[in-house]
Amino acid sequence: MPQFADLLREHQSLVYSLAYHALGDRAAAEDLTQEVFLALHEHLGKLESEAHVKAWLMRVTANRSIDEIRRRRYRRGPSLEQTSEPVREPLQEEMVLRDEVRRLVATLPATARTILILRYQEELELAEIARLLEVPVQTVKSRLHRSVNLLRQRIARKFSAARAGRQA
């Protein structure tokens, strides 16, 4: 079993990135990453292998992100860094599209958002996501499907309107 410092070096980006995409806020993602690794420091003796450590990190990060999203929504609504409106330059469209996707992902409910991030950032199978979040696979499947469709519709609507505006 690697030392704590090695595990930190190996998995810090995984944890930070999950938290960052879920919260849309660099400072909050750093704080959450620190909390998760300090918790790992406490639990390290109970984890058997590096594979367990990785699964544990993803589960704890996902659950804490969901809690934090809910707390923020209750306090002052979703916090977003990616609030920029699309710039209507064709060459930048790809970048704008990504920003917009991130912005819209940040408006999804906590669990749906986390499922989407685990699926598309970490490429996890639906069964793995279900195991991590302790929800039925069917729930993961339906929420993912619903979220992707919702995002697709919103993005299509937004960019069609932008394009129509440019052509006019």
Partner: peptide
């Protein structure tokens, strides 16, 4: 697009 938007960012 989702994969590209949600790709892993470095700490």
């Amino acid at each position: 697009h989702l994969r590209a938007s949600l790709r892993r960012v470095e700490a």
